[in-house]
Design a binder for these strands. Sequence first.
DNA 1: CAGGTTTCGTATCGATCACTATGGATAATT
DNA 2: AATTATCCATAGTGATCGATACGAAACCTG
Lengths: 185, 185
Amino acid sequence: MHLFWEHGYEATSLAMLREAMGLTPPQIYNAFTDKETLFRRALTRYHETEIGFALDALSAPVSTREAIRLLLLGAAEAYSRPGKPGGCLFVSGALAASPQAQAIADELKSYRKASEAAIAERLAKGRAVGDLPEGFSVESFAKYIAGVMNGMSIQARDGASVEELRIMAQTALAALPPEEQKRGA
Amino acid sequence: MHLFWEHGYEATSLAMLREAMGLTPPQIYNAFTDKETLFRRALTRYHETEIGFALDALSAPVSTREAIRLLLLGAAEAYSRPGKPGGCLFVSGALAASPQAQAIADELKSYRKASEAAIAERLAKGRAVGDLPEGFSVESFAKYIAGVMNGMSIQARDGASVEELRIMAQTALAALPPEEQKRGA
DNA sequence: CAGGTTTCGTATCGATCACTATGGATAATT
DNA sequence: AATTATCCATAGTGATCGATACGAAACCTG
């Protein structure tokens, strides 16, 4: 997973994987069928072990603004963990790919789209309970937040520290409309 | 340039380049020495022909806020030009790379760092003339703006339209502190 | 302890990578 | 017009890619 995270799908050779896992080629193929399946397993593992912060933030019983804040700060931390490759595997894994690896690139794109959709869902919920103003576009803002997270991923890859990413998250948060008073309260 | 832009440095094979340029391998090597040099030429050409908007925006005789607005809107347009690959070559070219191509990845990283530095320079100029409040951190905000542009590049690659990117740009701009009255005026 | 089976690592597969040597066609010179 | 020189595409170089055939070693059974 770390190799794919660091070098991307195509640039990670079986020789590197073999050495890292201490397995012989037949053992790898016996366990994972082929390189593509192994990568998908790595994606699943990454999803389960590295980015729980996202689901946590979006499902936390807090205001919409606070949920987005938790999401961005969680990303700042997750994208700059010591001993781990910088950024997000879903971004670094195959942003550009050869025609042969188009399926992999599309899969990663669908992960990113799913993240954006999850953000949009949380924003829609927020608008439903009056956390957000009337004219607020859920889709547009979700695209902004998802885009900022993608940008943080690249900044992390370029060496940004967790503090720098947190500041970027806080800055991005300033674009959110101010918390509204609930009319009923 | 388009091939590198679309598929990245390593995933673009000489066979693809040969077909696209209508040249034989020796002609390519006679003209460009090797693949790495050809890629660097493509980077230079990209810089000259595709992202003039950035220098234009940062050197325009307008307020700092307006300059950043022009920068982000220019990116929205440049990252989604019809008939061109989505996003920015400096991001897509080699976000992740094999150990052999580390030099290329580093070169692209330095391009991104240079962009961020250019933004920081413009912000510093803005603060010097009183466009920005006292406590404003030039470096942090430059990292935010550069990060947002990188994020726009990925959103563009994921199929975002120019309108969607413009909205993202406008949203990002809301994080900028409001234009200050010049004390002397 | 012998025989049969299964497991597993080495050595290699064909394909493709970036890259180049060489033979043939063309052009220039005597 | 004959000969030499120059160019240039084809064909192939070693290396590495993902993936596997095969022989040796180990193990369980009788």
